[in-house]
Write a protein that binds this DNA or RNA. Structure first.
Lengths: 192, 192
DNA sequence: ACTTTCAGTGTACGAGTGTTGACAGTAACC
DNA sequence: GGTTACTGTCAACACTCGTACACTGAAAGT
């Protein structure tokens, strides 16, 4: 799995990786692959699951931080950016195979992101940010947030690593987009 | 180009298509490919460009409609959904290779979508929706809108074609997300 | 009428592909 | 101490792949 991610870090898409390439990168003979997965798709599914765990850890970290409610967006974004840096390859995988891979992979990624959005919605509810919004609405908003997060991650990822001020700009844009969303959510009237 | 899109309509990603497959689907011998493109990437770039034109036509249509400003979102979404239905394959290509393909393809798609967002921002300005927002802010909001559009398109596209009520649900969700965004944009204060 | 361009065909190459089957060592279990 | 499960290796299979080269016929240009 690590070898597959490593290969993708050069800008390749998962679908374009061959079984032999992956085993070669893993320092193992092709036939050994079948000892662990029956398919390249199966490896991908395992990666999705692993990334799901990783994402849930992100929420836990964000939750744990004491929340001065004004700066909560900027702060969460900071955590997220750090997170993207640390788990760069997992996030890259998730974000770029979300629409790219086989239907099977797409479906499992969609499941994972929906799960993530749901947890986020529950968090928002428990923290009583955005009070007065129905659970359905919260779910909708969180879906939007998650999409925005993954888009931003993709932007971060094939950034020319030597221009920190472009990264700064991108982060700024990301924060502002989230702010728009939460501004809108705060204004939302469920019956309208 | 049409053959490539056709192959993708079965859920395959562009990157996973081989030159031979494409020519086979086009009813032509592999070597003929080189008469038109020197590369599969070059074909992809041509597709991106064609889709760009298509997208700009979308804006023109949306603009031409008389605007009862309350219903403008719902109405634009209707146009967009119709549009996704008609140019299904092009939109599918655009949305799914956005993060998937070679770095070259990614870059050209990004260029095209940014261009699209810019035009949309200019439209908003001319129609004086969202007055009081700087051009930079409008650009940021439109970027968010375009991302949301493409995400929705991807959702539309691998929908089980026999469940119209799921599609209805998805559309409803899409409209609500856009409404959140525009609500937020209307509340935006540039100096904050 | 002669030539150039264009789009297509056929053959052929070397390289890479997924998968099978038989075999080897090493750890774990009773 | 013998059996079983695990993980790995090697050789081989029938394919597919991208690309090079030489060739053909039709259209367009002068």
């Amino acid at each position: 799995m690590e070898a597959a991610l490593r290969l993708m870090s050069a800008g390749r898409s998962y679908t374009s990786l061959s079984l032999r390439e992956i085993t070669r990168a893993a320092g193992v003979v092709p036939t050994s692959f079948y000892r662990h997965f029956s398919d390249v798709d199966e490896l991908a599914l395992a990666l999705v699951e692993e990334t799901g765990l990783t994402l849930r850890r992100l929420l836990r970290e964000a939750r744990r931080a004491g929340v001065p409610p004004i700066r909560i967006i900027a702060h969460s974004v900071q955590i997220y950016r750090q997170f993207v840096r640390e788990h760069r390859l997992h996030i890259l995988f998730m974000a770029s195979e979300r629409w790219g891979g086989s239907p099977l992979i797409r479906r499992s990624i969609r499941y994972e992101t929906q799960h993530f959005a749901t947890e986020m919605a529950q968090d928002l509810r428990e923290l009583s940010l955005l009070p007065g919004l129905s659970m359905g609405t919260l779910q909708m908003v969180c879906g939007l947030v998650v999409n925005t997060m993954l888009n931003a991650a993709s932007d971060f990822i094939d950034l020319p690593a030597d221009q920190p001020q472009v990264e700064e700009e991108l982060t700024e844009n990301f924060v502002r987009q989230l702010r728009v969303i939460f501004l809108g959510a705060a204004q939302w009237k469920d019956n309208a």
